[in-house]
């Protein structure tokens, strides 16, 4: 089972809205929010009954850490996948803790050979425990590490080649990074292994103090939708999804955002 079409990040707060999307074929759920051994939230279980694929999306694995990834966290991710019968799981190319200290958010990995080796080992450890494919999502980088030996595209390509992992591309991140560095966002698209994309995150953001912030709590700006179209012109990903994490608008507005993504990507709308 592969992901197809336009999906949405399932959150308990919007469960009723997601349940009412007639054309929905997949959604993503925060892996750490799934209770292992416990029952799947009723509204997620109903989506599964409708054959809507549910993809656990991990945020706490810390694949990019120098130390081996915590086996318990891998087990949780694998358990989450089994719980919802997931076709794949995803995690970030980032570290969230180092030396036992929790950073509290996702930190970028330095693009060095050493970091690549550690990351590759951690991804392989994770894959060994998973029954389903793993998709890796590069995170927003507001800065570059001084000793970076790879470009972002080369680093990702090396990682995906070494591990056979899929790519979860966050198009809003691509936009934010390029814009904040004064680069052309399509330039990165031209260098990424787009054939490895499993699905794409589309999120909203806003400009604060001259920088574009990928907030996930604002509407998806037209520039990000244009980048979706630019991506699809190069190689259309099998699936794209709206990632909204708060400040939810009225249902009609959220439905319009989903439709806009479908139109930008040339996929059928899921709201009707």
């Amino acid at each position: 089972m592969t992901l197809t079409g336009v999906g949405i990040g399932w959150r308990p707060e919007i469960a009723g809205f997601v349940a009412d999307l007639p054309g929905l074929r997949f959604c993503e759920v925060v892996a750490e929010s799934l209770p292992l051994g416990g029952p799947v939230p009723a509204s997620l279980a109903e989506l599964r009954e409708r054959d809507v694929a549910v993809v656990p999306h991990g945020v706490r694995l810390s694949l990019g850490g120098a130390e081996p990834v915590d086996p318990h966290r891998i087990q949780h991710l694998a358990g989450a996948a089994a719980l919802v019968g997931a076709p794949m799981v995803s995690e970030h190319v980032a570290f969230v803790r180092a030396g036992g200290v929790e950073a509290g958010h996702l930190l970028p990995v330095p693009r060095s050979r050493e970091a690549l080796a550690a990351l590759t080992a951690n991804v392989r450890r994770t894959q060994a425990e998973l029954d389903v494919p793993l998709a890796l999502e590069p995170i927003a980088t507001l800065f570059d590490w001084p000793d970076d030996e790879f470009t972002e595209a080369d680093f990702l390509t090396e990682l995906l080649d070494a591990t056979g992992a899929l790519l979860l591309l966050d198009i809003a991140n691509v936009y934010a990074n390029a814009r904040n560095r004064g680069e052309e966002p399509t330039a990165l698209l031209d260098r990424l292994p787009l054939e490895r994309v499993a699905y794409v995150h589309v999120a909203g953001g806003s400009e604060q103090g001259g920088l574009y912030h990928d907030t996930h709590t604002d509407p998806v700006p037209p520039a990000v939708l244009e980048l979706v179209t630019a991506l699809c012109e190069r190689r259309r990903p099998p699936a794209l999804m709206l990632e909204r994490d708060g400040a939810y608008p009225p249902a009609a507005d959220l439905a319009r955002e989903l439709d806009a993504i479908a139109v930008a990507a040339g996929y059928p709308v899921v709201t009707a």
Binding site: E13, A42, P250
Partner: peptide
């Protein structure tokens, strides 16, 4: 109640979304 479980205060529904 079962159909609208997502509207229960314990589900922390996005009130603005549901209107």
């Amino acid at each position: 109640r079962s159909q609208y479980q997502y509207l229960a205060p314990t589900s922390d529904p996005a009130w603005n979304l549901y209107g």
